[in-house]
Structure formats: C-alpha cells, structure tokens
Amino acid sequence: MRSLWIERSVRWFFALCALASIVITVGVVVSLIGEALRFFARVSVFDFLFGLTWAPFTLPSGENLGFGSIPLFTGTLLITSIAMAIALPCGVMVAVYLSEYASSSTRQVLKPLLETLAGIPTLVYGFFAVTTLAPFLREGAAFFHMSLASESALNTGLVMGIMILPYMSSLSEDALHSLPTNLREGSMGLGATSYETIAKVLLPAAFPNIMAAFLLSLSRAIGETMIVVMAAGLAANLSFNPFEAVTTVTVQIVNLLTGDQEFDNAKTLAAFGLGFVLFILTLFLNILALYGIKRYKRIYG
C-alpha cells in the first residue's frame, strides 16, 4: 500500500511539473497578447501594421507621432535577406561537403570547429561587427569611392549570416545524412559523378528538409537581437540600400524598453505590440518548418 502511495505522489509531482510548463507556455502568449491589446487600444492596428513613419513618442496633448512599423519590418527583411543570402548557399555547401566529400577524419576536425562557431554568444558577433568588420568594410568602400554607413545593413547582415551558417549547415547535413545510401549507390551505378548525384538526386530528395532548415534559420535570424542592437542603426529608415543604416524590430523593442519603463504609455506598450508580431511571425515559420513541410516529405528506402 505504501509503495502505491509513493507511486501516486511521484506521478502527481511530475504532472505538476508538466502543468507548470504548460502554464508558462500559455503565459508567454497571454502576457504578450494582453499587453499588445493595451497597445492597440491606444494606437490603431491599421496604423501600426501599415504606417510608414516610426517615431514612437506621444505628445503631451495625447497625439501619437507615428507608430508605423513598416520601416522596422523592411529593415529586418533587408538584414535577414543579406544574412540568408550568405547562410543558405554556404550552409548547404558546407553540409554537402561534410556529408558527401569529406573523409571521416576531416569531418571529425571540421564539425567541432563549426559547433564552436555556433556556440559563440551573439553578443561577441555584435562586438566583432562593430569593432572589426565595420571599419574594414568602410575602408573597402572608400577605396571604391562609395560611402558606407558605419552601421550599414551590409555589415550587420554579413555577420548575422556567419552566425546562422553553422545552424543552417548542421540542419542541412542531418537532412542529407538521413537519405538512404541506395539513392547514392543507384545514381553512381548509372555512371553519374558525385556532383550529378548530389545536384540531381540527393538535394532534390532532401529538399523539404533543407527548406525546413532554411525556415528555422530564417526564424532565428529575424529574432536575433544582440548583433543588431550593437551593429545596426536606431533611426527607422525606409530603405533597401544595404549601404545605409536600417533598424530592426528587435532593436526597437530593446530601445523602447531601456529607459523609462512605465507600463501606461504607448511608447513602452509599443514594444509589446512589436513583440507580439515577432512572436506570430517566428511561430508561423517554426510551425511551417516542423509540420507544414511534413506533407511534402517522401519516404525513401
């Protein structure tokens, strides 16, 4: 009887743990929605989502200057596009090389090195972008008689791309690795070169998983904060020129909340509005990557 009692209480304890985790999960959503709703009570959703000016101040008269988040999202888009333009091809090529070309001893050396790159805190990437890469790029641009802002999207996107690269490559490598050997053997047996096997058989077969890797990497790039806080600009420029400084959603969230933190003004609440949109966006990408892609997966072997 006693053991039964213990058995039951342990089960309850674990159930309570699970319950707490669920409460936290729901808490993230509820608190974000709650504060976002308070924000949208002051600023209309339409103005927020489609407005072109971002000047998050409320005048003493109660008039809002501008809570249009379009420049922030275009800035995020510009920087993440540059980042993914590096991380996608390089990440896939690194994965191809590691899984199809490299000998196992080479792989044993290279993989931990890539993991090291993935383990560096993004704060360090940001510091590198500001102190080393930005001056270097500026001098490079000056050599070609071009002007490059010191907080240029190019600099930020480049460093972010390097940060995302190991993540992208490790997910893509898993995708290639999970393909059965007889796909390779069949293709090679028909006389195809390695390149032809990879480009015409393996990559198309792994495409849904590589797409998922791309979406997960993109979601990580969009939510990345420290690199952009340190290396990107603060001014909300509506620009697609990679040589100019743009700002991002995460930079503005940090900027709005470091300073006065009264909960009853639109400026602070705007951070929650931005956070909510960011949450929905990354959640959508993650769900698409984890579940939406399943539909297109084929079973080999």
Binding site: S31, L32, G223, A271
Partner: peptide
C-alpha cells in the same frame, strides 16, 4: 508541439514575459 515551438521562440520574447510576470 507547444513546447517544441517554445524552444525556437526568440530569446528576446522571454525578456518581455519576464518583464510582465
């Protein structure tokens, strides 16, 4: 599914949660 998704949520949003909570 929820917990899997939460593991991929940007860290900055946990800051917002911590701030409210």
């Amino acid at each position: 599914a929820n917990i899997n998704n939460l593991a991929a949520v940007p860290s900055i949003l946990f800051g917002l949660l911590g701030l409210v909570l």
